[in-house]
């Protein structure tokens, strides 16, 4: 009897200790990765990073063209993914809620949500690079839009479903057409949730590398023309980190640090927006 109690208590203590260990183990890696990126990135930060172009091997330079290219492609991705994603979510949440059609599309969307991004890159390569014969910023932007789309669909659909049915009924009772009710009443009520999804999507695509490798590729020079290969931060980080040059490594760390700062800041903003939405 006493032995049994002892064994059960021992098992309990061991399991609690192991679980605490697992939590500490995970936080340890988080701290290590953050620490490395912050120290390496901060020591590589210079004003010239924001004012000069990516350099040839062995000379100094900055990341200006890569920042600009990343900015252009992320904007393009958002511009493409937002209307498609929100409208698709409206179809799922407003017109087909609870039906088999919504179930199937939601299921496929959830698969796309965690599909390997490199496969999306290959797909856009086949679709937009091969037929035109050259890499382009447009192809990069479309690839990023593909990554972002399922995130927008998912969070918008969830936000739309949370709007109380009375809101819809009250608006319809005023005699407004359905599309107007959906866009200016229901979508507005769901706006914090939709914006949360957009921010999550931007955070996700601004660090994506694999889908840009075969779509936007890279460009050592300044270009504002998305029809041509375009520099972008993730691919520059990849190529510079793999290179044997120390000053390229430093630039890669600076780029990684800024991307991480951007993504984590977005994460904080997302939480604030979401909390405000929950309160209102």
């Amino acid at each position: 009897m006493n032995l049994l109690v002892l064994r059960r208590k021992l098992f309990d203590a061991v399991m609690i200790a192991l679980s605490l260990g697992a939590t500490a183990f995970t936080l340890f890696w988080l701290a290590w990765i953050l620490w490395t990126t912050v120290t390496q990135g901060a020591s590589a930060l210079k004003l010239s990073i924001f004012t000069q172009m990516t350099p040839p091997p062995g000379s100094d330079g900055g990341l200006l063209n890569a920042f600009f290219g990343s900015f252009m492609m992320v904007v393009l991705g958002v511009v493409i993914a937002t209307p498609i994603g929100v409208l698709a979510a409206i179809y799922l949440a407003e017109y087909k809620r609870g039906t088999r059609v919504a179930g199937v599309i939601g299921f496929v969307n959830d698969i796309l949500l965690s599909a390997p991004s490199i496969v999306i890159g290959l797909f856009i390569y086949e679709l937009l690079v091969l037929p035109f014969g050259h890499f382009s910023g447009y192809a990069g932007g479309v690839a990023l839009a593909m990554i972002m789309l399922p995130i927008v669909v998912r969070s918008s659909a969830v936000a739309l479903e949370l709007v109380p049915p009375e809101t819809r009924e009250a608006a319809l009772a005023l005699g407004l057409p359905r599309w107007k009710v959906t866009l200016s009443v229901i979508a507005r009520a769901a706006r914090p949730g939709i914006i949360t999804g957009l921010l999550l999507g931007v955070a996700r695509i601004s660090g994506e590398t694999a889908p840009l490798l075969f779509t936007a590729l890279n460009n050592q020079y300044w270009t504002a023309n998305p029809g041509a290969p375009m520099a972008n931060i993730p691919v520059v980080i990849f190529q510079y980190a793999m290179s044997p040059y120390d000053n390229w490594h430093a630039l890669a760390w600076a780029g990684a640090f800024i991307v991480m700062l951007f993504v984590l800041t977005l994460g904080i903003i997302t939480r604030v927006v979401f909390r405000q939405g929950a309160r209102s």
Binding site: A88, Y95, I105, V108, L112, I120, F123, R178, W179
Partner: peptide, 30 residues
Amino acid sequence: ADRAFRWLTAAMALAVLVILGATGFSMFWG
């Protein structure tokens, strides 16, 4: 306008299915 809007949203939702199918097909084709 209501009907057009409904069809528009349906087309966008269909796009999600098409993207998955087209991705698989383009890999196979390539």
